[in-house]
Design a binder for these strands. Structure first.
Lengths: 130, 130
DNA sequence: TCTTAATTGCGAATTATTCGCATTTATCTC
DNA sequence: GAGATAAATGCGAATAATTCGCAATTAAGA
């Protein structure tokens, strides 16, 4: 993989982002340096093939977002109401995945990096409404 | 919610499908009865709002697929190589989700119904290649 | 049966993503 | 460091999934 200016810029944006971001969000930041949207999509594909980033697609918005893979395999929790994201610095599924594999022969891989739910604030609001 | 011919047709297609299917796949079956693609999309949206179906989006193909919600909350395992789907008739995540909630205050909801991985056949093939 | 709001069909619009092709650039060899 | 070559990029057009607007139809209830 060639090291190019565009790739560096995109990599840094991903590294500096505290959340999983879309191609368009990357473009908003990178366009001032002349990086094209097609380059961004192509670069993200390359990074994905090189296993450097994780692509997630929200079932709520159908939008793809990307995050740099950290050393330790963790997750991002995203609130489906306020879209706040918080980091979970470990993977809670390792045990369970093993269990499923034993039962079904099916190896769960590459579970979604972004997990959806309600943050405590939005959950409280939700319950008050009822 | 009005009961209409289209909705019945779409509901039955979902009920009879052994896998999570896309709007287009539904259309292929339903078009002989004159059901439009826009009706299918709108109906799926309605069903989703009524909490009757689950929408999933594959991070591999970015395609949305839909499945009727069963009484007991289970999952579908889809192989990322051969796209075979098998049914997991329970949810392996209940314990883990509770654990995450205790640690973070974040309530995991609506985890993906479709889980991705490798079926045993494709996994063996994969390992032979190495 | 009549009324009304919800649903549908149709085609056009939108949006994210991919593609083709000419041009540029990083890397490798000498 | 100069030249050769494949890889990467920019640009705009093409594609594909999904949504929308609006007029016509239909289910449900009075």
């Amino acid at each position: 993989m060639k090291r190019t200016k565009s790739r560096n810029i995109i990599k840094n944006i991903l590294l500096n982002s505290s959340k999983s971001i879309t191609a368009l969000e990357i473009f908003e930041i990178a366009k001032k340096d002349g990086v094209t949207l097609s380059t961004i999509y192509r670069t993200l594909l390359t990074f994905e093939e090189e296993n450097l980033i994780k692509k997630d697609v929200s079932p709520f918005t159908s939008k793809a977002s990307y995050s740099w893979k950290e050393e330790e395999h963790g997750h991002i929790l995203e609130c489906i109401k306020c879209h706040k994201q918080i980091i979970l610095d470990y993977c809670p599924f390792e045990e369970v995945n093993k269990e499923v594999e034993e039962k079904t022969g099916f190896t769960l891989e590459d579970e979604n990096h972004v997990l959806y739910g309600l943050c405590s604030t939005c959950k409280e609001k939700n319950e008050k409404q009822k």
